[in-house]
Design a protein around this nucleic acid. Structure first.
Lengths: 296, 296
DNA sequence: TGTTATCATCATCAAAAGCTTATGGTATAT
DNA sequence: ATATACCATAAGCTTTTGATGATGATAACA
């Protein structure tokens, strides 16, 4: 196996370029014997002469020419690596791997878009999934950051709230409760609620509300997506509890109504989450502080 | 400037491939702390973490992935360089730069062809020129070897005779001297000779012959090429003195006759020549000994 | 012919590179 | 809860590396 050193190669490159040991020595701020020694060692390593001296002049041997070729390629690659890495050090380049729960998909893209405008060279990989799959990705270290409505229990996690997550009760615009002010919790007794599936953060919060207000509601209908809940509510099949963020558009256009129920909106938060001890890339770090600035 | 070592890179490559410090240590016959230290130094050099540890597992950071990419390219180039150089060490590859004086062009190609048959991978650059230009190339170190009829005077040269160079007097087939046996030197008195230009080795030898045999000949016609001399002689314009090697074909077909003159053929030699202290490539060395074997 | 430019060699020294062993911390698995 | 698998860190040692300055040899140059 060839055991060269970068030092040897770069000295060699200089000598080959200048076709002079002395010039190379000057260029590298060395004495001439130092250069001679490096070249000698290199030649011993390789087992072939690289230069030949005829009179005052030196020439590259065939082997020297070949090595010069490779040493330039290698130097080139090193330079390139250096520049890529130093870009990575700053914020000029890099990739942000982030996953968000599907509910967050209603606002996360805008946030990312704003971030990308500030850092145009950055690549983003945004994953949308249900809570479970996002947590798995986090655990498998496939992503740098995640956005969740409820930080997971595991101690291995750091979670930062960065935005309010207002849960509201929505109804179709034709619902009798629509536009009624100050609806008491008890009025919800026996109402039909379209819910997300078991395990969703929103659902947990809703159930906590119902039990703490001692209200029994009918929760037979389970939808696996927020969109399905909205559709069902809009069709008048019952009431829904959702993040305000996910229904902004429908409320604005009057297709859905937000009910003014006692104890609502339930104010929760969106959390930016990453594994503890995770060494965030500078990009991820930047996005994190970008989001946390939003918190104020 | 990035100051990496190949050691660091190769250890890094192993760790990145195994995604384990301990496996890499085994693979490289090192202890695990040794690996840790190499990686740590590498990370310090670069200024970025290359791995992150989450629990038992380690992962490449973004920077690590980039560096892995480059380290593989560089390793690849090194391997390639290694193989090219080791081929150069043997006789599998390489280039032979040789120049011959134009006269030698009548036999040099055959010699080269035979040599190439034995070493098919070798590239040959054959240059044909007059003596002056060949000597200049030798001096400028543009060629490894040269073939000359007369070794130059300079002390800076090594010359090896390897083949007889018989100078003969030729005449057109209709010449009255043709086929006469044992022509005395005096018979040449006042004959017209077609000669090569001043400075050619052949001409020098011829003039030496004439003066030592006290013969005056007419040497008005100077030709700059051997071919021109042959044509002129064939046309009956006079006699010529040339290397036997250059007229073999014409003698065989009867177009030219070799005269049986006293003191002829003048036996000289073809010389293989290179600069003193020249570090011959293994190919050149091989060709040299190939030619010298011909000498026997 | 002497002067100059250029590379090789030698003796010597300081710095660093590179290891190993021992030990410690932490997350995972049992 | 304990054991295990991993990596980090520290101390100490040897070897290698990289340089320097002095000196020498040789070929080109003037």
């Amino acid at each position: 196996m060839l055991h060269l050193t970068f030092r040897q190669l770069s000295v060699f490159e200089s000598v080959a370029r200048n076709l002079s040991f002395s010039r190379a020595a000057e260029e590298m701020h060395l004495t001439q014997p130092a250069v001679s020694m490096q070249i000698k060692q290199l030649e011993e390593n390789i087992g072939l002469p690289l230069f030949e001296q005829l009179g005052k002049k030196i020439f590259l041997t065939e082997a020297g020419k070949e090595l010069y070729h490779y040493s330039r390629i290698i130097a080139q690659q090193l330079l390139e690596a250096e520049s890529v890495l130093s870009e990575l050090k700053g914020l000029e380049r890099g990739k942000l791997n982030i996953s968000v729960v599907s509910t967050a998909n209603y606002f996360a893209p805008q946030l990312l878009a704003r971030f990308c405008t500030d850092h145009p060279q950055i690549k983003v990989s945004l994953n949308v999934g249900n809570r479970e799959s996002v947590l798995k990705q986090l655990h498998d270290n496939e992503i740098d950051l995640a956005i969740l409505g409820t930080p997971p229990e595991g101690i291995d996690i750091e979670a930062y709230p960065f935005m309010e997550n207002r849960l509201v009760i929505i109804a179709a615009s034709g619902n009798p409760l629509a536009d009624k002010p100050a609806i008491p919790a008890s009025r919800l007794q026996n109402e039909i609620f379209i819910m997300r599936e078991q395990g969703s953060g929103t659902r947990l919060a809703a159930e906590k509300y119902f039990s703490s207000h001692s209200v029994q509601v009918k929760t037979g209908m389970e939808m696996s997506t927020t969109e399905a809940v909205k559709q069902a509510v809009q069709a008048g099949m019952g009431l829904g509890i959702l993040s305000l963020d996910t229904v902004l558009l429908e409320v604005e256009t009057g297709r859905l109504k937000v009910l003014d129920v006692e104890g609502f909106p339930i104010i929760r938060h969106w959390y930016l989450v990453h594994r503890q001890n995770k060494r965030l890339s500078s990009v991820a770090e930047a996005f994190k502080s970008f989001l946390l600035r939003q918190a104020q």
